[in-house]
Write a protein that binds this DNA or RNA. Structure first.
Length: 480
RNA sequence: CGGGACGUAACUCAGCUUGGUAGAGUGCUUGGUUUGGGACCAAGAUGCCGCAGGUUCGAAUCCUGUCGUCCCGACCA
């Protein structure tokens, strides 16, 4: 059956008309968030939170498989503790919220609401790491953090957000470096296998790396409009924090050593990535593995004899295998079709009197709206197959977008031309000088280095900015 | 943090210029008819006009401040 591609929901602004407006429309119409009275703080509604829970469940299992343990740290950091690592505090100070009063009394030392917890983990590690036998320490926590952002948008940048932060300590530099890359791979795999999102991965430049890190690695997916989103980072710290916090252990030859450290995190921003990677003019499109509802069952003419009973029976059959919802509300079928499309439900089943007569139902895919009659006898297998196909279809479409909007610039002129006319990623050489990064950003109205990718051949011998000999291939782009 | 737009019912908005009883559509509630792409009829409920000051006999409307939202910049592991 041919899919009908005409736009059916008028409340959502078309992507091509105004991408930013489209995004906020989808976020609200799909009932993911509501605004609160505090600037930049959002209410994550049940449907949005259920996506986060599915993300958590999947990622948490991956972390545990790799040997990590969950802990919980306090949400307050005394000012003196935050200030122990110089680069770190300089990087975060401008966006930190402070608590200065407790009850009726002014605090003797103000407390920072954690923007990230490196310092707290270090304080704790100092107490529990004494011997090489205590290493490695592979800790992770799921929590909220606060960063006082000036411009906020639901999921993409909010004053408070939910995330996980892993903090690990290792005997050797090699082991810590391996951990950093292992977790980057963990994220990349998660993006591909669970969220159906392809991404460019690589190392951040000095200018863009995390405050206090020696190296920062990043997952950079491309949104539908060609803009990048920093989708997850993994940092190698060397022994810098360990020295600043005086964390030492006795090694195998009875010598005192500083351990080597990593940290890595992904946040609710990933939900923004899902929306802007897979969504369309009819609303959200969810990757099946994190969709709170995978199958929406819509009874047709449900007042007629046996329809509702059959729909219920069907749901009962599917319940253990999929996340299923039967909508037996009084709304018209057409209303329900639009509703679940807006909410991005991957598969819709329609069952009415005609279907029951023929022992079948109608199965509709959200990603391409393809409709097919499916025999009730092998419904489970067919849904499993379609959910897999939706995942694959979403990934391929996103990959085509990423590849189609990635351009190569061999010189300065070409760089400026692409930056001006073609939204997307630019692959171009760089001399390694921060001044060139700054200059390109200023000339292009915000095109920044995304990362130095792991793969990719040099596209020229000279820097696309200054023309001096090039050191690295860099992927550039605007970001959220 | 700069520039712009905007806060009126749950939502989208009209009313403000020219001060004088708070409005519409959608949604919601109840009853009925419907149901294969946002159905129809009837009845009903819903407002500190964002908040705080000021001007005035009288403020949704004029003035000041403040908080929040959106867009564009700047900033932003």
């Amino acid at each position: 059956m041919m899919a009908d591609q005409k736009k059916m929901v008028t409340e959502i602004t078309a992507m091509d008309t105004d991408f930013a407006k489209w995004y906020t429309d989808v976020v609200k119409k799909a009932e993911l968030v509501d605004y609160s009275s505090v600037k930049g703080c959002m209410v994550i509604r049940p449907y949005g939170y259920a996506i986060w829970e599915n993300i958590q469940k999947d990622l948490d299992a991956r972390f545990k498989e790799l040997g990590h343990e969950n802990v919980y740290m306090p949400m307050f950091i005394p000012e003196s503790l935050l200030q122990k690592e110089k680069d770190h505090v300089e990087g975060f100070a401008p966006e930190v919220a402070w608590v200065t009063q407790g009850g009726a009394n002014k605090l003797t030392e103000r407390l920072c609401v954690r923007p990230t917890s490196e310092t707290l983990f270090c304080e704790h590690y100092k107490n529990i790491i004494h011997s090489y036998r205590d290493l490695p320490k592979l800790y992770n926590q799921w929590c909220n953090v606060v960063r006082w952002e000036k411009t906020t948008r639901p999921f993409l940048r909010t004053s408070e957000f939910l995330w996980q932060e892993g903090h690990t300590m290792h005997e050797t530099e090699e082991e810590a470096r391996e951990e950093t890359l292992r977790m980057l791979k963990c994220y990349t795999d998660f993006y591909r296998e669970t969220l159906a999102i392809p991404a460019v991965t690589g190392r951040k430049t000095e200018k863009e790396k995390f405050a206090g890190a020696l190296e920062t690695y990043t997952v950079e997916p491309m949104m539908h409009n060609g803009v990048a989103l920093q989708g997850g980072t993994s940092h190698y710290f060397g022994d810098g924090f360990a020295r600043a916090f005086d964390i030492t252990y006795v090694d195998r030859s009875n010598k005192l050593q500083y351990p080597f450290q990593t940290s890595w995190g992904v946040s609710t921003r990933m939900i923004g990535a899902i929306i802007m990677t897979h969504g369309d003019d009819n609303g959200l499109v969810l990757p099946p593995k994190v969709a709170p509802i995978q199958v929406a069952v819509i009874p047709i003419a449900m007042h007629k004899e046996g329809v509702l009973e059959k729909a219920r029976e069907l749901c009962g059959r599917l319940k253990g295998l999929f996340r299923v919802k039967l909508d037996d509300s009084d709304n018209s079928p057409g209303w329900k079709f639009s509703e679940y499309e807006m909410k991005g439900v991957p598969v819709r089943l329609e069952i009415g009197p005609k279907d029951i007569e023929q022992n079948q139902c109608v199965l509709v895919r959200r990603d391409n709206r393809e409709k097919n009659f499916v025999s009730l006898d092998n419904l489970e297998q067919e849904i499993t197959r379609v959910l897999e196909a939706v995942h694959q279809g979403l990934y391929e479409r996103a990959l085509a977008n990423l590849e189609g909007k990635t351009y190569t610039a061999r010189d300065h002129e070409e760089f400026l031309d692409i930056a001006e006319n073609k939204p997307g990623f630019i692959r171009a050489m760089w001399c390694g000088d921060e001044a060139c990064e700054t200059r390109l950003k200023e000339e292009t109205g915000g095109v920044k280095s995304r990362c130095i990718p792991f793969d990719g051949e040099p596209v020229s011998d000279v820097c696309a900015c200054c023309g001096k000999p090039a050191k690295h291939l860099v992927v550039w782009g605007k970001q959220y």
